[in-house]
Computed example of a mutant assay.
Amino acid sequence: MTAMTVPEVLTELAALEDPKMRAANEKRGDDHGIHLSKMRALAKQVKTNHPLAKELWETGETPARLLALLICKPREFSADELDRMLRDTRPPKVNDWFVNYAAKKSPLAEEMRLRWFGDADPTVNAAAWSLTSVRVVKNPEGLDLTHLLDLIERDMKDAPTRPQWAMNETLANIGIRNPELRPRALAIGNDLQVLADYPTAPGCISPFAPIWITEMSKRVRS
């Protein structure tokens, strides 16, 4: 089967547009109207194609960028490409998929984490904290967890939404995975009250760190 071209892909994406889905997405800040299950189905049809993914990204269109993140090869992005892409991921879903499907899967993840940590751009700083949260869980050796707690205690309360969420996730994972630091992580969460009132669906765990830590620590072998 001949690889699809950018115009062909854009035509397929346009055919998937649903006005009701767009209206719902726009309330969350996303400018597309495609069911993500249909987006994933199209990605399976197109198949992994990194050159096509890069061309789709350069269109600047949210549906095209979401599809690009599903068909790209994260290991083939350079550090500068990842940096430039991240700084242009303003729609929430594009940002979420970029961090999870490109940055976290790149062999340059740690290099990017260090490069982005403390960046003045909230979107970039948030990505650094998301990568830090992954390290806390998967590869904590070499991380100064006490220093991370110091930064969270100092900055999380007044941080913009994206880095606040990522810092909160890091706080929770430190408390869940490190029994010796759990009391302090719980205390920070209780003192700051970040996401304490966040609505949580039945059967789901609240993102409020003290609740999250307490519940998940029961499931993780200390």
Rank of each mutant, 00 (worst) to 15 (best):
G60T: 03
E215C: 03
R28N: 15
D119V: 01
P160R: 07
S106D: 10
D197F: 12
S217F: 05
V46A: 11
I188N: 01
T161K: 04
E153I: 07
E141H: 14
E55N: 01
L114P: 05
R22I: 02
K20P: 04
E215L: 10
V134L: 11
R40Q: 14
I211A: 11
K138L: 14
H35Q: 06
R115N: 12
G33V: 08
S130R: 15
E26D: 03
M1S: 12
L192I: 12
L67T: 03
L52A: 07
I176S: 02
M4F: 09
E141F: 07
A126P: 02
E81F: 08
K47Q: 15
E12Y: 12
M39T: 00
P51C: 10
D158K: 05
R75F: 06
E180A: 12
T170M: 00
E110S: 12
G203N: 06
W165S: 10
E61G: 05
A23Q: 14
G203Y: 03
L192R: 09
S133W: 10
V220G: 10
S78P: 05
P207S: 04
E17D: 09
A127I: 00
I205H: 10
Y198K: 12
L82R: 04
E180F: 08
R40L: 11
Q45H: 13
I34C: 06
L195D: 03
L42C: 01
R162P: 04
I71K: 04
L171W: 07
P199E: 12
D191Y: 06
L10M: 15
A64Q: 07
K44F: 04
R154W: 08
G189I: 05
F77I: 09
M85P: 02
R177Y: 13
M85T: 12
V137F: 09
A68F: 07
P74C: 00
R65P: 00
P107Q: 10
L13R: 00
I211Y: 08
R113W: 12
T2E: 09
D18G: 10
L192T: 00
M4D: 07
R115Y: 02
G203A: 05
C72V: 09
T2F: 02
A209H: 04
T132M: 08
L192H: 03
E61Y: 03
L143Y: 11
L151Y: 15
A24L: 02
I71D: 01
E110T: 06
T11Y: 04
N95P: 07
R184F: 08
S133D: 15
S37N: 09
R135G: 00
V9L: 12
E12A: 14
M156H: 09
M4A: 11
P202E: 15
R177F: 13
M1Y: 06
P183H: 01
P202H: 06
P199L: 01
D150T: 03
D88T: 15
D144F: 01
Q193W: 04
A127Y: 02
L131R: 06
P210Y: 01
T48D: 13
R113S: 14
K105A: 11
G142W: 01
R84L: 01
P63D: 02
N100E: 08
N139P: 07
V137K: 13
